[in-house]
Design a protein around this nucleic acid. Structure first.
Lengths: 196, 196
DNA sequence: TTTTATTAATTGAACGTTCAATTAGTTTCT
DNA sequence: AGAAACTAATTGAACGTTCAATTAATAAAA
């Protein structure tokens, strides 16, 4: 069975399996056995490629953060867009199907919980949190005075995260997510049109 | 040591110890031993009063929800207040020192994570989520048209939860919480004054 | 072209630890 | 005495890690 050059393939395979396991059982009940069974590999392989269970969990979280970053990058660098449009894209990137998925939701929640104790994860969390704010501020600055832009960026960031959280925890996330994305976009229009 | 009528005293003692243990070690690393040691009691007493560890955890979460409910009730039923003032009180109730405390933060995060798998907790979570929205809607209806009131209530609820989350996860929560409360209140004023 | 050596990939059983729950026994109050 | 409160020790299951063994691929040597 063993082929050469399996390393990147196996690592991705195990990260996908981890997301799937967390989606099904939650992080609490995710063991190296549930992960390796989903991946169709042995349990020992996790320590071999990630140094242990914790290493795999951290890699999975980094994958989550990277997905969010790439979702933005993919749409923004495509063509020249105005500030208003850019703001709407930032919102959309936070509500992609991947971010709405059960595995992603459960992993995000576990990530936040764990980040309270793990300095490594806390650092990642803060980078991610500030990135959303910075991205919003950059665009708001082109539409509002500096003071107003800062306030708007903070309020928008909170509204995005808050809606995401409330939808993720709701009983019917699909419909709620859709409406939430719309209400975030409305808020931005309100902010900009309040110049009247 | 054993005295008669200790039941309610011990139960509260154990709930407080659970909050403290979660605050120090997190739910993941909180065991019946860490809790009972903080409470100054034996580990067996947990099963005696709560049927097991899970029962105590659930009771602790219910205590958390109750604290939030009471924080509102205490201030609202005091004197007659206008709608605007009432909205500010709702916000303040979500940012009390207790809700900003590390034990409360860690327990809330763990609660949300657990509620994804535990139907009992999920039910509690939804009741709590809807209560915030209902309270906001009630007051907004006295200031805005029905459609606008619904939108404003949803946006405000998201902003409260979002700010709370972002502050809870930040590196310097004290200062951020203070500013967040202010920004939530500003948002409400903006919503109301947009009638011009 | 075989043969031999070496490396990469992978397995899965054994081990030690952790932890919740149980149980039997002790103390105090009525 | 008997009920209520509580302790401390024990049990057994679950889990992550480790590691010796195995298999396959590649490289080197003959």
């Amino acid at each position: 069975m063993p082929k050469v050059g399996m390393k990147p393939v196996r690592k991705q395979q195990l990260i996908d399996a981890t997301l799937e396991s967390i989606g099904e059982f939650g992080l609490q009940s995710t063991t190296i056995v549930t992960i390796s069974r989903i991946a169709g590999l042995s349990s020992g392989i996790i320590s071999h490629y990630f140094g242990g269970k914790q290493g795999l969990i951290e890699a999975t979280i980094m994958h989550l953060l990277e997905q969010l970053r790439l979702a933005l990058l993919a749409q923004i660098s495509a063509k020249p867009i105005d500030a208003n449009e850019r703001l709407k894209i930032i919102i959309a990137a936070n509500f992609t199907p991947f971010q709405r998925s059960t595995p992603a939701i459960k992993t995000w929640l576990s990530f936040w919980t764990e980040s309270m104790h793990d300095p490594k994860l806390r650092r990642l969390q803060n980078i991610n949190s500030k990135r959303l704010y910075s991205n919003l501020l950059f665009s708001f600055r082109q539409l509002l005075a500096d003071d107003a832009a800062q306030v708007a960026a903070k309020q928008t960031a909170a509204m995005i995260d808050g809606f995401w959280l409330r939808c993720a925890l709701s009983t019917k996330p699909e419909a709620e997510f859709k409406q939430a994305e719309q209400l975030c976009k409305s808020f931005i229009d309100e902010q900009i049109n309040s110049l009247n």
